[in-house]
Amino acid sequence: DVEEQIRRLEEVLKKNQPVTWNGTTYTDPNEIKKVIEELRKSM
């Protein structure tokens, strides 16, 4: 579920933690925001 994935990513973003997405680890909050944007567009 895309909305659930977005929620999880936003939680990680709030905690300022790195997130691994599709085999890539993002540590930059701006990169994580881009991933969230892409997910929103795909909905």
Rank of each mutant, 00 (worst) to 15 (best):
T20N: 14
P18G: 10
Y26S: 01
T25I: 12
L13Y: 08
E11K: 05
T27S: 10
E3H: 10
K34C: 07
V35K: 04
E4T: 08
D28R: 03
E38A: 11
N22K: 06
Q17V: 11
V12T: 13
R7G: 04
N22C: 12
T25V: 14
E38S: 11
E38C: 14
E11R: 06
E38K: 08
T25A: 04
I36Q: 01
Q17P: 05
N16Y: 04
T27Y: 11
I36C: 01
D28N: 09
W21N: 02
K15V: 06
T24C: 08
T27P: 02
L39Y: 03
V19Y: 12
T25E: 09
L13V: 08
K14V: 10
L39T: 01
K41L: 14
P29H: 07
R8S: 09
R40M: 08
R8W: 15
R40K: 11
K33H: 06
V19L: 12
V19Q: 02
T25D: 04
E10F: 06
M43F: 10
K15L: 15
V2G: 04
I6Q: 01
V12M: 15
K33E: 09
D1H: 11
L39A: 02
W21A: 03
L39S: 00
W21C: 05
Q5N: 06
N30E: 14
I6P: 00
E37Y: 06
K14H: 12
P29M: 13
I36L: 10
N22M: 12
T25Q: 05
K14W: 12
I6N: 01
N22S: 03
I6L: 07
I6Y: 02
E3M: 14
E11C: 12
E3R: 10
K15Q: 13
E31K: 04
Q17C: 09
P29I: 06
L13D: 01
I36N: 00
Q17M: 15
G23K: 01
V19S: 02
L9A: 02
D28M: 03
T27F: 08
I32Y: 01
T20I: 15
Q17Y: 14
W21V: 12
I36E: 00
E4A: 11
R40I: 10
Q17T: 09
T25H: 05
E37S: 09
P29S: 07
P18V: 10
T25F: 12
R7W: 07
R40F: 05
S42K: 12
K41S: 11
D28W: 02
S42F: 14
T20V: 15
S42I: 13
K33N: 05
K34L: 11
E4D: 11
R8Q: 14
S42H: 11
V19A: 09
G23F: 02
E38N: 11
K34D: 05
E10R: 05
Q5L: 15
T25N: 03
V12Q: 15
R8G: 07
Q5C: 10
K15A: 12
E11T: 07
R7H: 07
M43D: 03
E3L: 14
N30K: 11
G23Y: 02
G23I: 00
T27A: 06
E3A: 13
E11P: 01
P18W: 05
R7P: 01
K14I: 12
I36K: 00
T27V: 07
L13P: 00
T20A: 07
N16G: 15
P29C: 03
E37C: 07
Q17E: 15
T25Y: 14
E37F: 08
D1V: 10
E31R: 02
N30F: 12
K41M: 13
L9D: 00
V12F: 15
D28I: 03
E38L: 14
T20W: 15
K34N: 08
I36T: 01
E4G: 08
E31T: 05
P29K: 06
R8F: 15
I32N: 00
K33R: 14
G23R: 00
K14D: 09
N30L: 13
R7M: 09
V12P: 02
Q17S: 07
K14M: 14
K34P: 02
T27M: 06
K33P: 01
T27H: 08
R7C: 05
I32V: 08
V2H: 06
E4V: 07
I36R: 00
M43I: 13
R7Q: 08
P29E: 06
K15C: 09
P18T: 13
E3I: 13
E38F: 14
Q5I: 15
E10H: 04
V12E: 14
V35W: 04
N22Q: 13
I32F: 07
I32D: 00
L9N: 00
N16T: 04
R7I: 06
P29R: 05
V19P: 02
T27E: 06
Q5E: 09
E37M: 11
K15G: 08
L39H: 01
E38P: 00
G23V: 00
R8P: 01
R8K: 13
V2F: 10
M43P: 04
V35I: 15
E37A: 13
P18N: 09
N30R: 13
Y26G: 00
P18E: 12
T24Q: 14
T27I: 08
K41F: 10
I6E: 01
E3V: 11
R40C: 03
N30S: 12
E4F: 12
E11D: 11
N16K: 12
R8A: 13
I6D: 01
Q17D: 07
K15N: 14
M43N: 07
I32A: 04
G23M: 01
K41Y: 10
I36D: 00
W21Y: 10
E31N: 03
I32S: 01
L39V: 03
R7S: 07
T24S: 06
T20F: 15
E10K: 05
K15E: 10
D1Y: 13
Q5H: 09
E31H: 04
D1M: 12
V12A: 15
E4L: 09
D28P: 01
P29Y: 06
E11Y: 05
I6A: 02
P29L: 06
L13R: 03
K15R: 12
E37V: 07
R7Y: 05
Q5R: 04
E3P: 08
R40P: 00
K14T: 11
E4C: 07
T27W: 09
Q5P: 02
V19H: 04
E11N: 07
L39E: 01
R7T: 06
R7E: 05
N16V: 04
N30A: 14
N16Q: 09
K34H: 08
S42Q: 14
N30M: 13
Y26K: 00
P18I: 10
D1I: 11
K41Q: 13
S42A: 12
E10G: 03
V2I: 15
R8N: 10
E4N: 08
Y26C: 01
E11I: 07
T25P: 02
I32H: 00
E31P: 02
P18H: 09
I36G: 00
S42V: 12
K41T: 10
Q5K: 05
R8L: 14
V12D: 12
D1R: 08
E11Q: 08
Y26M: 11
R40Q: 06
E11G: 05
I36P: 00
V19I: 14
S42Y: 14
G23L: 01
V35A: 04
T25M: 08
Q17I: 14
R40A: 03
T25S: 04
E38W: 15
T20H: 14
V35D: 01
K41G: 08
D1L: 12
Y26V: 04
L9P: 00
R7A: 10
K41D: 06
L39I: 06
T24M: 13
E4W: 11
R40L: 07
S42P: 04
E10Y: 08
K14S: 14
L13H: 03
K14C: 10
K33T: 07
K34F: 09
L13Q: 03
I6C: 01
K15F: 13
I36V: 06
E3S: 09
E37Q: 11
R8T: 12
L13I: 11
Q17L: 15
V19M: 08
S42C: 11
V2E: 04
D1P: 09
N16D: 06
N16F: 14
V19R: 00
L39D: 00
N16M: 09
E38Y: 15
N22G: 12
V35F: 08
E10A: 04
M43L: 15
T20K: 10
K15I: 08
N30I: 13
V12S: 15
Y26H: 02
R40N: 03
E38G: 09
R7L: 10
T24R: 10
D28H: 05
Y26T: 02
T27C: 03
V35S: 01
L9T: 01
E3F: 13
M43W: 06
D28E: 08
S42G: 10
T24H: 14
K15D: 08
E37T: 07
K14Y: 13
K41R: 14
E10S: 06
D28K: 04
N16R: 09
V19F: 13
E11H: 07
K33Q: 12
K33W: 12
R40Y: 12
K15Y: 14
W21S: 02
L39K: 01
I32E: 00
L13T: 03
W21F: 13
E38Q: 13
T20R: 11
Q5D: 11
V35N: 01
E4K: 08
K14L: 15
V19N: 02
V35G: 00
M43Y: 08
